[in-house]
Design a protein around this nucleic acid. Structure first.
Lengths: 258, 258
DNA sequence: TTCGATTTGTTCGTATGTATT
DNA sequence: TAATACATACGAACAAATCGA
């Protein structure tokens, strides 16, 4: 029998090794591999910079450069005096990093989510395109209504490949006490780090009008969103409809904070 | 009489100096001051890292950290082997950095711009709010129709404070052979580095319908956009309407390139 | 409360590699 | 080819934050 716990590999980098690019890029790749292999679970601290430097046989500066880029990509989080941690998709993080709907004053609020439907289906053409699936591949499809300030503002239709999340069912989503991305991460080690959002204007149909308490035909935002994981595999396709009568999609460019 | 050309100040940092934060932040501030003072004009190279290190009496590593952040903020552009340059708002740069409207395949194209109207006016309430003006302050207002693939897709209503751009007139905009941001930079040394975009859905009115060749009442994107310069002063307020029948606003998150 | 150990943050200096002119 | 400029890498030292003894 093989050992259950994989020991930290001896990934010391040899001086004569043939490298495609800079050394810190190689370090970055190895850290990412440890992440996808689950060596360091979400929320847990990774080894200190000094330890990583020793492990890979590189200088601390090289480790810092690699870690710094992963922090910039929101894969890791640094805390001075404590350590560096695998980014955990808790509510605050999700709000800060991925949520763009704000009220008239620009304030964000964590939405209250209500599951409307859940079913299994074959990939529709749009999902197949964005999730890179064959048309017979199966997906889970579920719909959420999100409330802000007590009013329904956002309607989501979400599709995820069954191949990526094999053991999902309705109860998992009904009983979740975390964000959807948090669920992906906690149950399947799938961490979303990249998003692609295609924003268009559309007219609400009858059902959407009822859900968002808006006249049928009224203009709403329609957002097609693809979520990618570490290795750029698409793991979720989401159609989002937003009532922008008292909210907006806020995009900040060239700003570090807020 | 004072000399016309201000000589490079002796901004060597004294070892005993009282600093609010890290040294590289102070270096960053001084580089920014040289930029706003016009010591290094747009497109021009700034001194080499070694020269800056000597000028400020810090190590090259400290200069690199400061410059690196300014590059991340799109204020400067590095070119290995050549030097570091003040970001110039040419067409490619503007397309890459600030333009978000893409076709169905995600491709960007430089829009053909047509000036529709130009006038002076008092600040309307919306402009006053976003540009932080008193209601009697004067603004230039002009309207542009932008074509993509030969069809009208975007309508812009732009307002800028007369206090910031005192010598603008219609001819300046009719005869421009550069981007609007390029004009701000070339004529007034005003470089836009931050944008804030509030995106909502709206219904096209009659005039917009005619301009964008769309039925009146059809859903369009309505974007309120504020442009800020180095020191976070708002310098432009733009209302943008987009026909999203064959285009979309594409927002990429957590991605380095494209 | 204080102290000491640990960890990240900052700064320095130096050497070498790579791209451009 | 040589000079210049940015990119990478190393090692060392101290500061600041955190946490447990």
């Amino acid at each position: 029998m093989a050992t259950e716990l994989t020991l930290p590999a001896d990934d010391a980098l040899q001086p004569g090794a043939l490298l495609a690019g800079p050394l810190y890029v190689e370090v970055k790749k190895r850290v990412m591999r440890s992440l996808t292999d689950g060596e360091w679970p979400q929320g847990a601290p990774i080894p200190s910079e000094a330890q990583l430097a020793q492990r890979y046989a590189v200088s601390v500066g090289t480790v810092r450069k690699a870690i710094g880029e992963l922090v910039a990509e929101r894969v890791l989080v640094r805390q001075p005096g404590r350590g560096t941690f695998v980014a955990s998709h808790n509510r605050d993080y999700m709000l800060e990093a991925f949520f763009h709907i704000v009220d008239e004053r620009g304030h964000k609020e964590f939405p209250a989510s209500k599951l409307l439907t859940f079913r299994q289906a074959k990939a529709d053409p749009l999902s197949a395109k964005y999730l890179r699936l064959a048309k017979d591949d199966r997906v889970f499809q579920f719909e959420n209504l999100l409330h802000l300030q007590g009013k329904p503002v956002i309607f989501d239709r979400i599709r995820v490949p069954q191949a990526v999340f094999p053991d999902f069912d309705e109860d998992v989503f009904r009983q979740r006490d975390m964000t959807i991305f948090g669920l992906y991460q906690a149950r399947h080690g799938v961490t979303v780090t990249r998003l692609e959002e295609w924003i268009r204007a559309a007219n609400a149909d009858d059902r959407l009008g009822r859900l968002l308490d808006i006249e049928p035909g009224a203009a709403v935002l329609r957002i097609e969103r693809v979520a990618y994981t570490y290795d750029r595999t698409p793991v979720e396709f989401r159609e989002r409809f937003v009532d922008t009568r008292s909210h907006a999609y806020l995009n900040l460019l060239g700003m570090k904070k807020t």
